[in-house]
Design a protein around this nucleic acid. Structure first.
Length: 352
DNA sequence: GGATCCTTCTTCTTCTTC
């Protein structure tokens, strides 16, 4: 098989640059192309230029072959992760335990008093790792092979650019900005909820690092009302997981579980947000089963804020979408549980 | 004071033709 890579120009002669398989067999390649249509190659005096063609092909200008490209890729990005075959991909996996998203025993009570400061239930954990895993830990430990591959590749690229220390600094800075942004949003929401004069906070001065992000979400904040909870712990007793949700409030009149995000890249589509919708569904499902909250949520909202102040993207998750992501969450939870049990049993065997 | 936990982010691209 001959693979035509690109057409280069040498002097006034058009020379097809093929992979190494092509070298020394110009006529065969020529025949392939001439069967389709009359091309400029047909007028090339093959005998006369064969040495030139060989010289060009053996030069170091284009020494790439599929073999060394793969080698190079493996060196830079690690071994190739093969995509799933279409038949297995089309199979729709359904969680074994299709737990309801809404707690049917409780009535969906959303009309209760919505004034006063928002609830904030702090995480109260023991001294050592609790047997209840968190949403973040579960999502991190059940990433797909594809996600792990792209994340690792990105990390290697960044380290190549910034160096190990530079990358550490860069990551820490992203986390620091994210945390600062979250606490600033929370402060703003609490002060808006407790203050009668909402206008005053709209002209607030923020720390330079979050000024752009706050500007970015200003149009979203204008649509947020009746904040019921901020940075509050939710726990699903039956499914055994917990987490800290960002916010519950009305967005354009609809009660939503809101997750604030910062991003360097624009994320105009929900698909750009990776596992964020699953995270939101996981928190909402936990909240709906958690007796500390006297209401339930059926909708979600992911707000992606940008440092340059450009308008944040707001991805609203309808109740149908939330159910879809709830189902995905249940699968991830199942995977996590299976992993934990197999790890526990293997360490038990090792100890014995 | 030290250790631990939950978060905070990061991925989905690369060349052919006008």
């Amino acid at each position: 098989m001959f693979i035509l890579k690109r057409v280069g120009c040498v002097g006034s002669i058009m020379v097809p640059q093929c992979t190494s398989l092509f070298v020394g067999n110009f006529s065969a390649c020529h025949c392939l192309s001439s069967t389709k249509r009359h091309s400029p190659y047909s007028s090339v005096d093959i005998e006369r230029y064969s040495s030139l063609v060989k010289a060009v092909m053996s030069s170091k200008v284009s020494s790439q072959t599929p073999e060394n490209l793969q080698e190079e890729d493996e060196h830079i990005y690690g071994p190739v992760v093969k995509a799933q075959n279409p038949s297995s991909r089309s199979e729709v996996r359904v969680p074994k335990n299709l737990h309801p998203f809404l707690n049917c025993e409780e009535t969906v009570e959303t009309e209760e008093a919505e004034s006063g400061p928002p609830a904030r239930i702090l995480l109260n954990r023991g001294k050592y790792r609790s047997p209840v895993p968190s949403v973040t830990r579960i999502l991190q430990q059940t990433l797909s092979r594809e996600q792990i591959f792209y994340l690792e590749r990105w990390k290697r690229k960044m380290i190549a650019q910034l160096g190990e220390e530079g990358f550490q600094e860069y990551s820490q800075n992203l986390f620091r900005q994210g945390k600062l942004f979250h606490s600033t949003v929370e402060d703003t929401l609490i002060s808006d909820a407790t203050s009668m004069d909402k206008e005053s906070s709209e002209k607030a001065e923020y720390q330079p690092d979050v000024q752009g992000y706050m500007e970015s979400i200003s149009h979203v904040l204008a649509d947020v009302s009746a904040v019921r909870a901020t940075e509050s712990t939710v726990q699903h007793a039956e499914l055994n997981y917990l987490g800290i949700m960002d916010c519950v409030a009305r967005y354009r009149g609809v009660l939503c579980l809101i997750d604030w995000k910062t991003s360097e890249k624009p994320k105009p589509f929900l698909s750009n947000t990776f596992d964020n919708p699953i995270q939101v569904a996981a928190y909402a499902g936990a909240l709906n089963s958690d007796g500390n909250y006297k209401y339930q949520v059926e909708n979600g909202l992911i707000i992606v804020a940008y440092k340059d102040g450009s308008p944040a993207h707001a991805h609203q998750l309808s109740s149908e979408l939330m159910l879809k992501y709830w189902s995905t969450w249940l699968l991830r939870l199942e995977n996590f549980t299976e992993q934990s049990t197999s790890q526990a049993s293997s360490s038990f065997v090792e100890k014995r």
